[in-house]
Amino acid sequence: MIYIVDRVQVAPADVPAYLQALSDSAHPVLTEAGLELESCRATAGDLGLDVDVEVVWRVESFEVWNEVRRDLVRHPGWRAWAHRAEGLRRGGSRRFMFPVDLPVGG
């Protein structure tokens, strides 16, 4: 399993709009293309800093991701989501991550 981790920085006042965009622009399009939503978390909004919003999507393999990608780039809703998100975030990152064994204890 591959985890696609998008972490963006959003002004506190824009967090509701960003989450709304995730909900009604990103989620329908990305899940239709084949991604599954793993989690969505955010830092506190009252720290006097931008809020970090972290959304994790999962996909089975890079082969499946390639097909998802093909469908996304041809989907007008995906470009609309991208445009909407671009206007709300101040920065961010995307990483493809994998589960790793963490030897703990004994």
């Binding site: 890079f62 082969e63 990608r69 998100a85 975030r89 990152s93 995307r94 493809f96």
Partner: peptide, 19 residues
């Protein structure tokens, strides 16, 4: 389908990537 394509190149060019 190579991980470098998805993980590094697309990071900078794909429309919805934060980077």
């Amino acid at each position: 389908v190579h991980p470098f394509h998805a993980s590094v190149i697309d990071r900078f060019v794909l429309a919805d990537s934060p980077e």
